[in-house]
Design a protein around this nucleic acid. Structure first.
Lengths: 206, 206
DNA sequence: TAGCGTACCTAACGCTCACTAAGTTTGTCA
DNA sequence: TGACAAACTTAGTGAGCGTTAGGTACGCTA
C-alpha cells in the first residue's frame, strides 16, 4: 500500500506516544488494542514493542507524563504571593488551557475503570498523588482550617471533590467542543471557588 | 463438588444481579467475565443467559435500575416547600445513605471507561439523563440565573461538576470505608453547597 | 411413583488480542 | 560500492472470553 517511511527512533517513539494517547483516550485501557495503536502510529505492532516493554508499560509512561505536566502546571499557577482571588482563577484558566491543548492526554488521564488490575493500580496510584498534591495546595490557603479543621482526610475529601469535578467537566467539554474556554473557567469558579472562598470564613469579602 | 441448590427463577435472577453488580463494580465492564459473574452467583455461565440476553443487556439493566433509584431519591429529597438550606443538606444526606447502602451499585454506576463501544454508549446516555435531571433540579432553585444565566449549557456544566464531584467522592469513600457518613455529607456541603448558595446572589445570608 | 417441565451442567466454537520468532529492507559510513 | 546496524515486516502462538449446542437431573404434580 503506502510505502512506509523509515524514521529515527525518537521520532517514531513520539508518534507512538501520540497515537497511543488518542487510542487510550477513546477506548480505555482494555478497549485499546496494540494493533490499533500501531496502525495509527504508521507501523506494525512489533515496532511498538521496540519502544515499550508491554501495553501496561506504555500506558504507565503516558499516565506519568500527564501527571507530571498537570502537577507542574498547578504548582506554577497556584503558588505565588498574590492573593488567592488572583491565583485561583489563574490556575483554573491554566488548567483549562492544558485540557484544551492536550484533549487526549486529559481524557486518558481522567478515565477510570481501566478494566485491568495492574493498569487500575497504576492509575489509582497516580490519581492519589494528584489528589494529595491538590490537598497540599489547598492546605496552603489561608482559612483552610475552616474546610478541613485538623483533619487530614477532610482536606483529601475536598481535594477529591474538586479533582473529580474538574475531571468530569473536562470530559464533558470534549463532548461539547464548541464551548469556549472562558465559560468552562467561569463554571468552575462559580461552583467551586466561590464555595471555597466562603468556607474559608468571615474574612472573605461579602 | 458442592451440591448446588436448585432455585426458583426469580431468586436466581436476583442473585445474578447482585453478583454482577459486584463484579462490574470491581473490574469494570470489560474486565468482568461472565464466568466470574456466574461463579459468584453460584451457577455456571449458561444459566446467566437464561436470564439475560447478553453481557451488554445485563449491564444495561443494572445501570438503568441504579439510575432510577438515584433519580427517585433526588426527586424525593430535593423537591419540597422547605427552604433550600434545608432541602439541599437533606438531599446530600440521602445520597450518602444510598451510596452507603448500595456501595457496589454506586461504584458500578459511577465508573467510566467501560472499554466497549456499546456499553460506553449506554453508560453515557444514562449519565446524561442523570446530569440533565440534576440540572433541572438546580434550575428550580431561586437565584439559579446567577449560576447559569439564560444559558442552558452553563446549567449543565454546573450539574456536571457536582455530579462528577459526588461521583469521585463516592469512589474515594469506598476506599476509605471507616469515614462516617456525616463527614462525607459535611465535605460536600462545604465545597459545593456553600458555593452554590453564595453564587445565588446577595440574598444569601452573610 | 411415573412423567414432565425446567433449572442447570459440560464441552466446545470462534473470535480477539498481547506478545514473539525469524526474516527483509533501508539508510549510513568506511 | 558494499557491508552492517537497525527499523520494519509477515506470520504466527497461546490464552481468555462471550456465546451456544446439546444433554442431565431435580422436584413438582397427577
Amino acid at each position: 500500500m503506502s510505502p512506509r517511511k523509515r524514521l529515527p527512533k525518537d521520532e517514531r517513539r513520539e508518534l507512538i506516544e501520540r497515537a497511543a494517547t488518542q487510542v487510550f483516550a477513546e477506548h480505555g485501557y482494555r478497549g485499546a488494542s496494540m494493533d490499533a495503536i500501531a496502525e495509527r502510529s504508521g507501523v506494525s505492532a512489533p515496532v511498538v514493542y521496540d519502544h515499550f516493554a508491554s501495553k501496561l508499560d506504555l500506558h504507565r509512561r503516558l499516565l506519568e507524563r500527564t501527571r507530571n505536566e498537570l502537577l507542574e502546571m498547578w504548582r506554577e499557577h497556584l503558588f505565588g504571593d498574590e492573593p488567592a482571588e488572583v491565583r485561583f482563577p489563574r490556575a483554573i484558566e491554566a488548567w483549562a488551557l492544558y485540557v484544551e491543548e492536550h484533549p487526549y492526554a486529559a481524557k486518558m488521564f481522567f478515565r477510570g475503570g481501566l478494566g485491568d488490575p495492574e493498569a487500575e493500580a497504576v492509575h489509582r496510584e497516580v490519581q492519589a498523588q494528584a489528589r494529595v498534591g491538590l490537598g497540599v495546595l489547598l492546605a496552603r490557603e489561608p482559612g483552610a482550617e475552616n474546610i478541613a479543621g485538623e483533619d487530614q482526610e477532610a482536606l483529601e475529601m475536598a481535594a477529591e471533590i474538586i479533582r473529580s469535578g474538574l475531571t468530569g467537566l473536562a470530559v464533558w467539554w470534549t463532548d461539547h467542543p464548541h464551548v469556549p474556554r472562558e465559560q468552562i473557567v467561569q463554571a468552575v469558579i462559580n461552583v467551586v471557588w466561590v464555595g471555597l472562598e466562603r468556607a474559608r470564613g468571615p474574612q472573605a469579602p461579602v
